[in-house]
């Protein structure tokens, strides 16, 4: 590799590995990417494990331990460009359900040996700890969007990520509305696009795995969803893969004040 070849690190925090697997799932492009950059740190894939500085750091997972909170700050100092990928890294992930729970109660009742644990009371996105240059949504991220972000970086231009909600992607795709036609609860109107409206195309409602769209009127959607399903179902729908993201996080309060 020449001195000008970008040094790339892929780094994981609390997560399922699925977003970095999405990079390995780029079977047609993987060897091409590996030829265009110098992958100097990607534990899951193997290869060298070198320290920074890095030109590009791709980060998966949320921050749930004091050790990881320190680790992401060190990584930020070492990385010229930092891209966080996936619902854990951009919204805290499903493990952020702990944020609304009584963690002391968990600790005293649930663990055999809570003294062995080293964990924080919250699961927070990377952007709660350091400045993030690009956020890529999804649980998991979309392969095409991931390739786009990497390509844009290599071309030296900002990525163009459409911020339309899933509902708009669904209309573009020409899928019959599952909410209007079948009464299937769907978060499409309030969920950030990027998946291409996958779930409605499979006859199911969107469950919000790309997190809240840029502008969200969750209250209006909650009112509509209640025509078809119980308040508990509506609450759970908002509080799954992006439970603590602004736009979804407030829905619990809406639920409680309404008899």
């Amino acid at each position: 590799m020449s001195a000008s070849t970008p040094r790339v690190a892929v780094v994981k925090f609390a997560s399922c590995d699925g977003c970095q697997l999405t990079l390995l799932d780029c079977e047609d492009e993987l060897l091409g990417i590996a030829g265009a950059v110098d992958i100097v740190h990607f534990l899951e894939a193997g290869g060298p494990v070198l320290s920074g500085p890095y030109d590009l750091a791709i980060v998966e997972g949320s921050i749930t331990t004091a050790h990881d909170a320190a680790r992401i700050r060190e990584l930020r100092e070492q990385a010229k460009v930092l891209v966080s990928i996936g619902a854990c890294a951009t919204a805290g992930g499903i493990q952020a359900l702990r944020n609304a729970a009584d963690v002391q109660e968990y600790a005293s009742v649930v663990y055999a040996h809570p003294e062995y644990l080293r964990t924080l009371a919250t699961s927070t996105p990377i952007s709660s700890h350091v400045v993030v240059d690009v956020e890529l949504r999804g649980c998991p991220v979309d392969k095409g969007q991931l390739l786009h972000v990497i390509s844009a970086y290599l071309l030296g231009r900002p990525p163009r990520l459409d911020s339309s909600p899933v509902c708009v992607e669904c209309k573009r795709r020409g899928t019959t509305c599952v909410l209007v036609a079948h009464g299937t609860p769907c978060l499409g109107p309030v969920t950030h696009g990027g998946c291409g409206a996958l779930c409605p195309a499979f006859d199911r409602g969107c469950f919000g795995c790309f997190g809240p769209a840029d502008t969200v009127n969750a209250g209006a959607l909650v009112g509509r969803l209640r025509h078809d399903v119980s308040p508990g179902t509506v609450t759970r729908l908002f509080h799954t893969f992006a439970t603590d993201a602004p736009g979804f996080r407030e829905v619990h309060a809406l639920e409680e004040v309404d008899p």
């Binding site: 697997l21 999405t22 493990q95 359900l97 998991p140 759970r236």
Partner: peptide, 28 residues
């Protein structure tokens, strides 16, 4: 690897949710 407490967060969820929720234990 930090723990993510899936069994705890599954309590109180609907019967139709575990396939989507537990999938997130492992992307592989």
């Amino acid at each position: 690897e930090p723990p993510r407490f899936f069994e705890a967060l599954l309590r109180g969820r609907g019967y139709e949710e575990p396939p989507d929720i537990t999938a997130r234990i492992c992307g592989i």
